[in-house]
Amino acid sequence: MLSSKADDFARKVRSCDTRGLARVLSMVENGHPLAHSILHSLYNPERSCLTIGITGPPGGGKSTLTDRLITYWRGNGNKVGVIAVDPSSPFSGGALLGDRIRMQDHASDPEVFIRSMGSRGHLGGVSGTTRDAIEVLAAASYDPVIVETIGVGQTEVEIASLADITLLVLVPGQGDEVQTMKAGIMEIGDIIVLNKADRPGIEQLEMSVSASFELIPDQAERPPVIRCSAQTGEGLDKLTDAIVSCAFSGTGRKATARKRTTLILGSIIREKGRELARKLVSDRYGSVEEAIESILEGKTTPYEIGEVLSGFLENKQENRE
């Protein structure tokens, strides 16, 4: 992994050269051949940067809330990084990335770095490279890094594994939904934010949310539920207090480093495993599509191809011995 070009890019990231940093983020997003060498040189499992995920329904106020959180951390003298993910069109592959509109207060602040990303076909509320983009911003000493996901349905919970702290944003009118939500979605929130508290229906929302947590017998296990209005700023101090105390009550730096490393290696094994298997199938059958044709013509079955792949792994092992 020694490439002086990759090292050059890594140096630009570390010294926080804005143009260079932005370029590296594109390389990571596009799967540029140097991307992994650069990440290799930047990766520090015990980095201290706090990662905050913000998820919730479309239009729930995630971007407006992000804007408020930026203000808070800028007030503490921190450099703040933001990754805002919006859905890519499954038809054209294009995307309209509009989260910056709500973050205009910080548009000319050089210590705030905001990057918009299309989900590019990845399911889970973030893009496939969001995880790597966080590492890049952390290496450029942005702390915290805030990740706004696309508006969630009920399955888009990947952010909870990427972020140190996940805020689940709910808004008035969602009370009934809360009761029918699958257990999983409520569990991803380390903090439940009841936003738009300036609007009617907030009482009802709070009641539904509290009711859904009554099933958890241990009070200490229940996540904090914070009412606020990202629009008026009311209740924001309670939210930032909750984030800060949640950050310090966490599992500790060593455990976080292990969790993060496990996650990243796990997904790299999955991605590379898939590539490797596809390559093997292509080597033998021409392409995956041609393998499918062979199966349809009755020459082989998916299971035989599976056996061939297992056979390859065993051979690999024998060769080592």
Partner: peptide, 18 residues
């Protein structure tokens, strides 16, 4: 967007700096 591009829309009343 419909032509397959990623479009960042920054909203109205932006300074040249922003």
């Amino acid at each position: 967007r419909d032509a397959g591009m990623e479009v960042i829309y920054t909203g109205i009343r932006q300074t040249p700096e922003a």
